[in-house]
Design a protein around this nucleic acid. Structure first.
Lengths: 177, 177
DNA sequence: CAGCACATGTAATACGTTACATGATTAC
DNA sequence: GTAATCATGTAACGTATTACATGTGCTG
């Protein structure tokens, strides 16, 4: 089983969802630390059903539209619990094209590089705004146990973005001088 | 052409290297923002030679061992320059199993979660130490133009790790209370 | 009734990892 | 002389993306 399978298992365990719901979750709420495309999700769901780790109930939406609402099985819960207790792998090595290009920055003029930094800054600031809005929806004095993970992750993502923005600004100043 | 191809092109442009050298570079110096395995590197080198973006000279190491020292062609330089000027893609979505598990933290006891945070902290601290040693090798008042990218990237990686460590410590305190 | 969101699936292709396979050079 | 490092390559498999393919439901 791959990580995506466990991610799906965990999400279904949190809440009964359809494949469509998962698609949205993987492109929005958990996108900061895991992502998957629609086609991958549907194929993985099928495998999980075959492995009897999840099952589904067909629900009629409107007149005829059948949707599959998935839930986790006992066997699925066991698998998920076992995975949760596994040792963590080495620190994740992310791939970042912006940084890669920066490593080859001799190729660009100072002006061109600054332009790239400015665009990157904008993107980070936009995302920071979105995350901050989300964060402000929490009442920090009263986080329900089930939401502690979400809360801490969001806090981490915001801290990371702030540091990134600070670094981009400092680097920009450094290049301009 | 995929990003790995451009990464290799950029590295060969910086310095004549062998496939073996690239393998080390991708697992050490640039691993923080791009990585690749040995098998992938050798296949990609072959493709780049076929596309006439790089060429190689066979050098005899010792008595008989033939090694291929790659260099970039004019066509390769053009391709690299074109790629460098492309617009940046959306902010990279990294995949992080530690964070994914944190999202499902209800599955774990407080003690278990703390254990995971402590282990993660150790890993981050170890890496920070390594990066700091590297950073101290620079004379910050005199960075040669060709090394500005390296320097800024290292600075960014250190800032990122410090923030990560701070976040892990705060989160640990939060869970323990 | 139009346009967007909801809903599910498959096929082809591309990218990445693990494992296999082999041999020379160097430093101790 | 032996172990670590240098050096190159392929095969099989696993994971991920893009594109194809289709149809319903809801809101204005």
């Amino acid at each position: 089983m791959n990580t995506l399978a466990y991610a799906i298992l965990g999400l279904i365990d949190k809440d009964k969802v359809t494949g469509y719901d998962l698609t949205k979750i993987f492109s929005d709420s958990v996108a900061d630390f895991w992502s998957a495309k629609q086609s991958q999700i549907y194929t993985e769901l099928k495998k999980l059903v075959d492995a009897a780790l999840i099952e589904y109930e067909v629900v009629i939406q409107g007149e005829v539209l059948e949707k599959k609402v998935y839930s986790i099985t006992t066997k699925g819960k066991e698998e998920l619990a076992a995975w949760m207790h596994e040792d963590e792998p080495p620190l994740s090595q992310s791939k970042d094209i912006f940084k890669l290009r920066l490593y080859f920055s001799e190729q660009l003029t100072s002006q061109e590089l600054c332009g790239k930094f400015e665009k990157q800054l904008e993107k980070c600031q936009l995302l920071l705004t979105r995350y901050t809005i989300k964060f402000n929806e929490y009442d920090s004095s009263d986080i329900p146990t089930a939401k502690i993970g979400d809360y801490l992750l969001l806090k981490g993502a915001i801290a990371h973005l702030r540091t990134q923005i600070e670094w981009l600004n400092e680097s920009l100043a450094y290049i301009q001088k």
